[in-house]
Design a protein around this nucleic acid. Structure first.
Length: 861
DNA sequence: CTCTCCCT
C-alpha cells in the first residue's frame, strides 16, 4: 500500500470537501487556537486526524487478493517446505513473510504453555459438567446441550469425548453452519491438543480439506456432512456427530436433523449431540425421542438494554444521532450499528461524517470517530479495516448488516445500536416468488445483537424501539427452510433414497405447496419420473454441488457438445456479487461502463436473439484466462480477483465430477456464434421453466421517467427504447429485467423477444436476474413434459389430503409455464399497476401488513 | 432502475 493515499476513488466533490476539511483541521491546530480553547496536552500529542470516512477504505486497486477472507495459517509441512524453497520471493524477497514464518515457528507452544492451555480449559464453564456430560452420552443416544456464548461447548465437547475413547472406533464429526466457524474452531482445538491441523484434529470445508487418516476430531460445514450423507447415508466413519449452532437453523442443519433421526434408528452405536445457544429445547427434545437436555451457563459480560419511550420511524437518522450522542457522552469502547443493506450503510456513514464535522465545530477537542462500513459484498481488503483497532484516542463505529450478528465478530464493541430491522428473503408460496424485504427482527435476534456488546467487558445496547414493540416481536426467526426454494434440498433427499418427501420428518415442516412446487420443477427438469422417482439424469444432477437448474444445463451441455463453455459459465453463475460497485456515484458509473464494454465487445459476435448476461459472463471468464488470471485485469473490470479465483476452483471441481460421472466431455467445434448458440440451447434445458416474453406496450403507457428519457434522446427514440418489461410465463406476472443485467446496459440493442432468467426476486419491483435470450421453439419441450404430469402421482400422496383447499388449485396445476401465453392477462395485470403512486401506496400497506403479521396476536386489539 | 446472508 502506498504511503500517500489515493483519492481517485472519491468524487471530485468529495475530494474538495476533504481538502477543505483538512485546511480547517490545520487551522485548528494548537498554534492557531486561543489558549482557553487549547486541547489538553495529551490530545496535543495525538494531533487530530479527522478524515472523511471513505479515507478508511482502500481504493479499489489496493484490494488484497485474500483467499476467501479466511486466514489459514498452516504450519509448513515438509513437502510444502520443499515446494517453497525454489521460490526466492518467499524467503529472500519478502522480509515480512519471513518474519511471520519465524514468529509462527517460535510460537510453537512450549511445555509451560501447554500447561497454561490445560488451565484455560479447566477454567471454562463447561468443565464442571464434564463427568455428567460423558455419563449422559454413554447412557443415551441423543443429547441436547444448551450452552450460552463463552461456555466452551464448541471446542471442549469434542475433546472430552475423544479423551473418553469415543474416537477409538470412528471419527467425531462436528458441523458448523459457516466455513470460518469450522476452520477457526478446528485451529483452536488443534492448538489445545498440541497437534498440527489435519493431524488428529482437522477440518473439511469446500476447497479446504485438512484431514488425514489420523484425524479423530473433524470440524466441517453442515453442507460438507450433507454431501457425505449422499455417499454414505449410514455415516459409517463416524462414532459421534455433533450438530453445533443448531439455533441458527440453517437449511442444511435442518435437513441433517431429519437424516440423523433416520440414521440413528439404524445405527444404535452412533451418538448424536445437538448443541446450541438458546433454542426451544422442549420442541427439540420431543423431536429427538425425548432426549436429555443439558444446560451449561456461558461466560459473557452483562449488557444494559435501553429502549425508546416513543416508537421511531426514521431509524437511520435515529441510529446516527444515537451514535453521536454515545460518542459525546460515553466512555471508551467501539460502537456497532446494525442496518439492513449497503445503501443504508453508506447513507449512515455519510451522515455520521456530517454530524462529526458539526460536532467538531462545537467541540474542537472532541476525540476522533473512525467510521467503518461492513457488509459481505465489500472486498476483503476493506472488510479487514473492521478488525484493526481504532488508533489510540479515537473511537471506532462499525456500520454493518447482520453479517456482524453471527458471521464476523468485531472485538472491542461496547455499544450496540439495534434499530430492529433485517433484510430477509421470503418465499411466497402462492406466487412462487422470492422476495427480499425489510422486516422486524425476532426477539432471539435482538438478544444476539445485544450480546455483541458484552464480549470483552460490560456493554450497552440501544434498541431503537419501545419495550412494547420488543414484546410484540416474534420470539424466534422463521427457520430458513420455510422461506427458501427447496429444489436442491429435495433433489439431494431423493438421491439419498428418501422417496416420500411430504412424509419426511422436518423439525419445522415447510409449506407443502413449497415442497410440491419444488418437485414439479424437478419433474420439468427431467430429474424425476412421473411417479416421483429419480431419473438417470436426476442421479447425475444430484452429484453436482449446484442449483438443479445449472446441474441440468451441465448434463445437457455434455449431450449438446459444449461442456467447456458450460463449465465456465456455471462456475461464474455460482458466484454472487461478482461485479464490484464502488460506493461513489462516479465509481459506479465507471463500473457500469466497463460492464457495458464487455457486453458490447461480444454483441456483434453473438446472435441478437440469444444475447444476455450468460454470454457476457462467459466472455468475462475467458478474457480473464487470456489475461493469465491477472489481477490488473480484474481491477480494470471491477471484478474481485477472489471471486474469479473461486469460479476457477468451482470449475475445476465440476470438471472432476463430470469425469467421475463419465459424462461426455467431447465438444463440437464451430464458430463463436455457433458455440454460443449451442451453449444457450443447453442452458435453456435448465432454465426453460423460467421463461418470459417481452411485453410491448404503447409508448404513452410507459412510465414517466422513460418517456422523458425517450423524448430527450433522439437515439433512444429512434431505436424505440425498451423498458424491459416482460411477462413471466407461469402466472402472468409482470417483471423487469434487473438493472444490473447486461441486457439493460445496451439500450441500442433490441431486447430479446423471449428470455429465460436465473431467478425472480421482489424488492421494490419484481426483477429477473441474469437473463438470456432464447428461441421460442426451445421452449416447446414443455408441452411434452406437461402431458405426463399428475401431481398426486408425482408426490406420492393425494394432494387434496396435504394441501388446504385454498391453495389446492395451485398445487395441482400443471401450468409451470405456458409459452402460448395470452397477452390479455398481462394487459390486465399492467392496468392494475399502471398508476405508480397507487402501487407504491399499496406496497407500503402490504409491507405494514406483513410487519404486523410478524407480531404475535396481542397486538390485534 | 439495484444492492440481507450463508453453503456444497
Amino acid at each position: 500500500m502506498s504511503s500517500t493515499r489515493d483519492h481517485s476513488h472519491l468524487s471530485a466533490e468529495d475530494q474538495i470537501k476533504l481538502e477543505e476539511w483538512r485546511k480547517k483541521r490545520r487551522a485548528r491546530e494548537p498554534d492557531n487556537v486561543t489558549p482557553e480553547l487549547a486541547p489538553p496536552p495529551k490530545a496535543e500529542a495525538q494531533p487530530k486526524k479527522r478524515r472523511n470516512w471513505r479515507d478508511h477504505l482502500t481504493s479499489y486497486d489496493e484490494v488484497d487478493n485474500d483467499e476467501d477472507g479466511i486466514v489459514v495459517k498452516r504450519r509448513p509441512t515438509n513437502t510444502e517446505e520443499e515446494e517453497r524453497i525454489p521460490n526466492e520471493n518467499v524467503y529472500s524477497g519478502n522480509e515480512k513473510f519471513k518474519q511471520d514464518e519465524e514468529r509462527e515457528l517460535a510460537e510453537k507452544p512450549t511445555k509451560k504453555e501447554v500447561m497454561d492451555i490445560a488451565a484455560v480449559r479447566a477454567n471454562l464453564p463447561i468443565y464442571s459438567f464434564r463427568e455428567d456430560l460423558i455419563k449422559a452420552v454413554k447412557t443415551g443416544q441423543t443429547l441436547i446441550v444448551i450452552g450460552e456464548t463463552g461456555s466452551g461447548k464448541s471446542t471442549q465437547i469434542s475433546q472430552y469425548l475423544m479423551e473418553e475413547g469415543f474416537a477409538d472406533r470412528g471419527v467425531i464429526g462436528i458441523t458448523q453452519p459457516r466455513r470460518v466457524g469450522a476452520v477457526s474452531v478446528a485451529r483452536r482445538v488443534a492448538e489445545e491438543c498440541d497437534c498440527d491441523i489435519g493431524d488428529m484434529v482437522g477440518y473439511s470445508v469446500r476447497f479446504g480439506d485438512q484431514t488425514s487418516p489420523k484425524t479423530k476430531i473433524k470440524y466441517m460445514t453442515d453442507g460438507v456432512l450433507l454431501r457425505e450423507c449422499l455417499l454414505d447415508p449410514m455415516l459409517k466413519r463416524y462414532s459421534v456427530i455433533i450438530l453445533d449452532e443448531a439455533h441458527e437453523r440453517s437449511v442444511n442443519t435442518d435437513i441433517l436433523f431429519g437424516l440423523m433421526k433416520m440414521t440413528l434408528a439404524k445405527r444404535p452405536d452412533l451418538k448424536l449431540l445437538i448443541t446450541s445457544a438458546t433454542l426451544d429445547q422442549g420442541k427439540f427434545s420431543h423431536y429427538f425421542n425425548n432426549s436429555r437436555v443439558f444446560f451449561c451457563p456461558g461466560r459473557s459480560y452483562p449488557v444494559d438494554i435501553f429502549y425508546l419511550d416513543e416508537p421511531n420511524k426514521d431509524y437511520v437518522d435515529k441510529a446516527v444521532r444515537t451514535a453521536i450522542r454515545i460518542h459525546e457522552e460515553e466512555g471508551k469502547g467501539d460502537i456497532l450499528i446494525f442496518l439492513t443493506g449497503q445503501y443504508e450503510i453508506e447513507e449512515a456513514c455519510n451522515r455520521l461524517e456530517k454530524e462529526m464535522q458539526k460536532l467538531y465545530k462545537r467541540k474542537p477537542d472532541m476525540q476522533d470517530l473512525v467510521i467503518v462500513p461492513l457488509y459481505a459484498a465489500l472486498p476483503p481488503g476493506e472488510q479487514s479495516k473492521v478488525f484493526q483497532p481504532a488508533p489510540t484516542g479515537t473511537r471506532k463505529v462499525v456500520v454493518a448488516t447482520n453479517i456482524a450478528e453471527t458471521s464476523l465478530t468485531v472485538e472491542g464493541v461496547v455499544f450496540v445500536i439495534d434499530p430492529g430491522y433485517v433484510k430477509q428473503t421470503g418465499f411466497n408460496a402462492t406466487t412462487g416468488m422470492e422476495s427480499l424485504e425489510v422486516v422486524y427482527i425476532s426477539q432471539v435476534a435482538a438478544q444476539q445483537r445485544a450480546g455483541r456488546g458484552g464480549r470483552t467487558r460490560p456493554g450497552k445496547c440501544y434498541r431503537l424501539y419501545t419495550k412494547t414493540e420488543y414484546d410484540n416481536l416474534i420470539p424466534s426467526t422463521v427457520p430458513e427452510i420455510q422461506r427458501s426454494n427447496l429444489c436442491n434440498v429435495i433433489l439431494t433427499l431423493k438421491a439419498m433414497g428418501v422417496g416420500d418427501i411430504l412424509g419426511f420428518e422436518f423439525l419445522d415442516p415447510p409449506d407443502p405447496v413449497l415442497l410440491i412446487d419444488a418437485m414439479k420443477q424437478l419433474f420439468f427438469l427431467g430429474a424425476l419420473q412421473p411417479d416421483g422417482s429419480l431419473t438417470t439424469v436426476g442421479e447425475k444432477m444430484a452429484k453436482f454441488p449446484l442449483d438443479p437448474k445449472f446441474s441440468r444445463a451441465l448434463v445437457a451441455a455434455s449431450e449438446t457438445g459444449c461442456t467447456r463453455d458450460m463449465l465456465s459459465l456455471v462456475a461464474m453463475l455460482s458466484i454472487e456479487n461478482i461485479f464490484y460497485r464502488p460506493s461513489t456515484k462516479e465509481g459506479r458509473a465507471k463500473s457500469d461502463d466497463k460492464r457495458r464494454e464487455l457486453f458490447e465487445d461480444i454483441s456483434g459476435h453473438v446472435p441478437d436473439e440469444i444475447t444476455g448476461d450468460h454470454v457476457a459472463l462467459l466472455y468475462l471468464y475467458d478474457s480473464w484466462l487470456d489475461s493469465h488470471k491477472d489481477n490488473k485485469f480484474c481491477n480494470e473490470y471491477f471484478v474481485q480477483p477472489r471471486h474469479m479465483k473461486e469460479a476457477d476452483d468451482i470449475r475445476k471441481q465440476l470438471h472432476e465430477i463430470m469425469e467421475t460421472e463419465k459424462l461426455s466431455l467431447s465438444d463440437k467445434k464451430g464458430r463463436y456464434s455457433e458455440r454460443m448458440e449451442r451453449l444457450s440451447l443447453a442452458l435453456c434445458q435448465g432454465l426453460y421453466i423460467n421463461a418470459a416474453k417481452r411485453f410491448n406496450r404503447p409508448p404513452e403507457a410507459k412510465p414517466k421517467h422513460l418517456r422523458e428519457k425517450i423524448n430527450n434522446d433522439e437515439d433512444l427514440a429512434h431505436n424505440q427504447y425498451q423498458d424491459y418489461t416482460y411477462v413471466v410465463m407461469n402466472r402472468g406476472q409482470l417483471a423487469l429485467v434487473h438493472p444490473q443485467s447486461a441486457v439493460l446496459l445496451s439500450p441500442q440493442q433490441q431486447a430479446p423477444e423471449w428470455i429465460v432468467y436465473g431467478d425472480l426476486v421482489q424488492t421494490t419491483r419484481v426483477f429477473m436476474r441474469t437473463v438470456c435470450g432464447v428461441k421460442e421453439e426451445w421452449l416447446e419441450v414443455l408441452h411434452e413434459r406437461k402431458k405426463d404430469l399428475n401431481v398426486s402421482k408425482l408426490v406420492g400422496r393425494d394432494v387434496r389430503e396435504v394441501v388446504s383447499s385454498l391453495k389446492l388449485a395451485q398445487a395441482v396445476s400443471t401450468e409451470i409455464v405456458d409459452s402460448k401465453y395470452d397477452e390479455s392477462h398481462a394487459e390486465e395485470a399492467f392496468a392494475r399497476r399502471n398508476d405508480d403512486a397507487k402501487v407504491q401506496a399499496a406496497r407500503e400497506r402490504a409491507l405494514q401488513r406483513r410487519k404486523q403479521q410478524q407480531q404475535p396476536p396481542q397486538k390485534k386489539k
